[in-house]
Design a protein around this nucleic acid. Structure first.
Length: 457
RNA sequence: GCCGGGGUGCCCGAGCGGUCUAAGGGGCUGGCCUUGAGAGCCAGUGGGGCCAACCCCGCGCGGGUUCGAAUCCCGCCCCCGGCGCCA
C-alpha cells in the first residue's frame, strides 16, 4: 500500500532523480525530499516514544486511588507535556515541509516516452488523407515523413480559409469582436448552425462512449480549491483556473477534475474496477500562459464544452486502458473523417500529473499544421494518492492507490475549427460530417448536410 | 438564510471524561470441517513508524479545555426535518 513516488524515494532515490531529469526539472528536489522524509521519520519516532510514556502515566492516574500519589503523577504528566509540545512543533514543521516537497514531485515517466523537449514529440501513427495545399507540402512532410511517420495526402491547388475567418467573415456565424468588447478576448458568440454543430458533436461523443459501457456523468462545474490542488499541478492552477470571489470555489478547467474527485477518500473493491466514466461539462480556462497564441477564432478560448473519458483502474490495468481511451478518441475522429496523427508527447512537454501522454492532432489545411484535439494521459497513482482513492483486493484485503486515466473524447470548439478547415470547398461551403447527421435530424432548423457562406448583401 | 436533530471502522450500530482509547452485529478475506455447497467453528479486516515485535495516531474537518476527550467548548463542512427566500 504505497505511493509509487514515495516508494521510489525511499528505496531508490537515484532512479527517481532520473525521472525528474527526463523532465528537465531540478533533481535536487529529490535530495531535499529524501532528506526531509528521513528527518521526519526520526522525529516521528521521538515524539511517539514521548507520547507513549505520557500515556502510561495518564493511565496510571486513572487507576490510582491514593490522592498524594495521584497528584504526583499528574504533575509528572504535566511536565512531560511541555517537552512533547516542543517536539510536536518540530515534527509539525517537518511534516509540512515534507508534504510541500513531496507534492511538488511530478509523476514518474514511462519508459516508452521520448526524452526531450517538445521538439522530441514523436508521431507514432496517422489516419486519413490530409488535404495539403501545394505550397504547404514541405511543412506537411516536415511534420510526418521527417518525423518518422507516413501519412496519406491529397494535394490541392487552392488554399482553404482559416477557421477564424470562416466563422467570422465567410459563414458569419461567430462574433468574437463583440464578445471581446463585452467579456474579453478569447470569448465568442456562436450562432445558428455552429451552435447546432457544437451540440451535435457532444451528442455524438456521448452516444458512442455510452455504447462502449462508459457511465455518463454530469459533474460539478465548480470545485473547492483543495480538490483542484490535488488533481493538478501548480503551473496549471496558475495559468488556467478561475476563482469565485468570496467563496472557496473555482471553475473547472475540465470535467477530468470533477470526475477524479468523485471517489475521493473512498475504498473501491477490486471487482468494481475499472470504473469507466464519460463526463460532459463546460470548461473554463484562463489561458494565462498562452500569450498571443491563437488569439483569433475559437481554437484557444476561455470556455468550451467537452466530453471527457475518465477511468479509475487497478495498477496492472492502466497501461492497457491508456491505449483503450486513446483508441476510443481516435475512433471518434475517424468517424468524423478528420485526418490526424497520434503523438507520443516527450518527457519535457508532459504535465506533472502524467506518466505518459498521447495527443491526437488533426491536420489543419489552412494553417498547414497539426493541431491538438485530444489529450490522453495515464496519471498512475499521482492523483489518487492526493485524493486518497484506494482499491481493496479481496485476497487478504490488501489496499493500494488506484490508477487514474483521462482523455478528451470531443472538445467542441476545437473540433469545430477542424471541421471548418477540413470540410470546406472552394466556394466556402462546409460539409457536415455524415456521422453527425442523426444528431441534427430531430431539429427542424438544424443544418443537415452543409453550412453555407452568408449571402452577400 | 434561520431554528432543531445528526455525522463513529467496508456497512449497521453502542459508547457521551479514565476500569484495553470503539461493545455488538453484518459483510468481506483466510483457515478448519465437508465429496462439493451450506451451516458451524477459529482468525483477520482504519492510518502511520520501510518489515516484525512493539508503539503512535484515529470516532466529519480544524482548533481549544484536561494528567486523560468519540465523550466538554469554539469555528467550519456535510446530511436529515421545519420555516423563509428564489431561477
Amino acid at each position: 500500500m504505497s505511493w509509487i513516488i514515495l516508494d521510489l524515494l525511499r528505496k531508490n532515490p537515484e532512479e527517481l532523480k532520473e525521472h525528474i531529469r527526463k523532465r528537465f526539472l531540478d533533481p535536487s528536489l529529490v535530495d531535499k525530499a529524501y532528506q526531509i522524509d528521513l528527518e521526519w521519520r526520526k522525529k516521528l519516532r521521538e515524539v511517539e516514544q514521548l507520547r507513549h510514556k505520557h500515556n502510561e502515566i495518564s493511565e496510571k492516574v486513572g487507576r490510582t486511588k491514593d490522592p498524594v500519589e495521584r497528584d504526583r503523577l499528574i504533575n509528572e504528566a504535566r511536565e512531560m507535556l511541555n517537552m512533547i509540545m516542543e517536539k510536536e512543533k518540530e515534527l509539525k514543521y517537518l511534516e509540512d515541509e515534507r508534504e510541500k516537497i513531496l507534492l511538488q514531485l511530478p509523476n514518474i515517466v514511462h519508459e516508452s516516452v521520448p526524452i526531450g523537449d517538445e521538439s522530441a514529440n514523436k508521431p507514432i501513427r496517422t489516419w486519413g488523407v490530409a488535404k495539403v495545399y501545394k505550397e504547404d507540402l514541405q511543412q506537411f512532410f516536415a511534420e510526418t515523413r521527417e518525423k518518422g511517420v507516413e501519412m496519406r495526402y491529397e494535394e490541392i491547388d487552392w488554399k482553404p480559409i482559416g477557421h477564424a475567418d470562416m466563422l467570422e467573415y465567410v459563414l458569419k456565424l461567430g462574433n468574437t469582436e463583440k464578445a471581446a468588447e463585452v467579456a474579453g478576448s478569447r470569448f465568442y458568440y456562436l450562432f445558428e448552425d455552429l451552435v447546432w454543430l457544437d451540440m451535435a458533436l457532444l451528442w455524438f461523443a456521448i452516444d458512442k462512449m455510452t455504447q462502449k459501457g462508459y457511465i455518463l456523468v454530469l459533474p460539478p462545474y465548480m470545485l473547492r480549491e483543495k480538490i483542484i490542488e490535488a488533481v493538478t499541478d501548480y503551473a496549471t492552477i496558475k495559468d488556467a483556473i478561475y476563482k469565485i470571489e468570496g467563496e472557496d470555489l473555482v471553475l473547472i478547467g475540465t470535467a477530468e477534475h470533477s470526475i477524479a474527485a468523485l471517489h475521493a477518500n473512498e475504498e473501491i473493491d477490486e471487482d468494481r474496477l475499472p470504473l469507466k466514466y464519460v463526463g460532459i461539462s463546460p470548461c473554463f480556462r484562463k489561458e494565462a500562459g498562452a500569450g498571443n497564441r491563437d488569439l483569433k477564432g475559437i481554437f484557444r478560448v476561455h470556455q468550451f464544452h467537452k466530453v471527457e473519458q475518465f477511468i479509475f483502474s487497478l495498477p496492472e490495468q492502466s497501461w492497457e486502458l491508456h491505449e483503450e481511451i486513446t483508441r476510443n478518441a481516435e475512433e471518434l475522429f475517424q468517424e468524423l473523417g478528420l485526418p490526424y496523427r497520434v503523438v507520443n508527447i516527450a518527457s519535457g512537454d508532459l504535465g506533472a500529473p502524467a506518466a505518459k501522454k498521447y495527443d491526437i492532432e488533426v491536420w489543419m489545411p489552412a494553417q498547414a499544421k497539426f493541431r491538438e484535439m485530444v489529450s490522453s494521459s495515464n496519471v498512475l497513482d499521482w492523483q489518487s494518492y492526493r485524493l486518497k482513492i484506494r482499491f481493496v483486493r479481496k485476497r487478504g484485503r490488501v489496499k493500494g492507490y488506484v490508477h487514474t486515466l483521462n482523455s478528451t473524447a470531443i472538445a467542441s470548439t476545437r473540433t469545430i475549427t477542424a471541421i471548418l478547415e477540413n470540410y470546406q470547398d472552394r466556394e466556402g461551403v462546409v460539409e457536415i460530417p455524415k456521422v453527425l447527421r442523426k444528431y441534427l435530424e430531430p431539429f427542424q432548423k438544424a443544418p443537415k448536410d452543409y453550412i453555407h457562406p452568408a449571402k452577400k448583401i
